[in-house]
Nucleic acid binder design. Structure first.
Lengths: 231, 231
DNA sequence: GCTCCATTTATGTATATACATTATTGAGTC
DNA sequence: GACTCAATAATGTATATACATAAATGGAGC
């Protein structure tokens, strides 16, 4: 038996989905839903508030509750843990750690990681799927925020997987661009020079503290970021 | 005065953000929160359920409520209405409609729009910002779902803007890839041949009905998709 | 040690009620 | 007609209460 507040919620959702109620439409008041379903106001309220939280409805005191206008094409872009994703599909995954260096932040490091100072761990690696180069990764980890990273064997576990499992983040910024492969990138990814690559940069932090910077380069013709969005 | 359930919510959020409570940590029971804040269980429950809905917590009956492990780097990618975005920044926007054709769906159209049959509107246009080519757009609109689009003057209003304002969508899929500019694309975007371009494809539908397909090509070195995410 | 089962404990749902808040409405006044 | 202000109608918050549900726990029996 699906709970009542969920049924009310689905009722509203399906009317919006079907186009019966368009953005800006004023939906029945909570009192009217009470009558319609013969339930208490709290139950109706629970359904409505969940929909307001999800962005499908907006409510204004005294005025009522309205179907929200989607202002953007907002997509929940899920950038997965590469290894988990790949192995979940039954494919073989291999990591190739090219460089690992612990150092004091250089000027360039400071700009990328957006820290004023401190020690960091710099990694350079390649991800292979079915023994084909899948992506190159350039990674900086702020050792002031994550000192335990200094002890981890990143030739066995991808930095992204380890960080995701061990260091909760609260804020992230992604930047997606396209660029032409330079000689080293072309070599590392086994694509022709100048081949278009998808570059995904990610900054992650917890509270005010910078955790990590990552730059992943994917061969353009073998990789696509797919985002699916349900209102 | 911020409401009590919001204060409880912020209390929990900040403990997670600060790292005090890591993923998997069992947070106090609802009864314990009642004592701590001297309030009723419903108030605590409201705070907790909002956090469960947002994905920050998970709860299991009898076992308790736990800090959820972020399984993905999930980012809210907001793909804006180009014209609104550009003009909002005080820059000049111009649209160049290259082709407009109403036709019966060809085999290729059917594959792209994912419809079995029917009439559609095919558009080809270029977006200019400050008189520089910003993106090319290939657009298919399902006239069965949106018959009124046949009457719209798309040389004045960008198809994306018009659709966003007039046709509510409930589901969307985005695909982001990188590709090398062919001769026509290079010409249209005023970039060298083989320059890396960011390709953004979007499928939109309402309920089960296909609304539109769009393919936007941006010059790689002049454009970046930026997504910001707050937990 | 193992299995089964009743108990316990935590969340999940729902009601009835009360008062707060706020934008709209509309009546009264100038 | 335009302004003022109080009444009103909607959502927002919170309480106290009750029972449902599910899973961890612990004890009885083997």
């Amino acid at each position: 038996m699906t709970p009542l507040h969920r049924r009310i919620r689905r009722d509203i959702e399906s009317r919006i989905m079907s186009g019966e109620w368009r953005p800006g439409h004023r939906i029945p008041t909570e009192a009217e839903w009470m009558d319609a379903y013969g339930c208490s106001r709290m139950t109706v309220n629970k359904a409505l508030r969940a929909l307001v939280q999800s962005g499908l409805l907006e409510s204004r005191k005294r005025a009522g509750t309205f179907v929200a206008a989607p202002r953007f094409h907002r997509a929940a872009l899920e950038i997965p843990d590469i290894r988990a994703e790949v192995e979940g599909q039954g494919l073989s995954y291999r990591l190739d750690l090219i460089r690992r260096e612990r150092r004091r932040a250089s000027a360039e490091d400071k700009a990328l990681l957006r820290v004023p100072d401190g020690d960091l761990l710099a990694l350079e690696c390649r991800h292979f799927v079915q023994d084909l180069p899948y992506a190159t990764e350039t990674r900086l980890i702020n050792l002031r925020a994550v000192p335990e990273a200094a002890e981890v064997d990143f030739s066995a576990e991808p930095p992204g997987s380890w960080l995701l499992a061990h260091v909760p983040w609260t804020e992230a910024e992604h930047r997606i661009t396209a660029l032409n492969a330079g000689p080293e990138t072309a070599d590392a990814l086994d694509v022709p020079q100048n081949a278009a690559c998808l570059a995904l940069e990610r900054w992650t932090w917890r509270g005010g503290e910078r955790i990590t910077y990552a730059r992943l380069l994917y061969p353009g013709e073998r990789y696509a970021l797919v985002a699916h969005f349900n209102a």
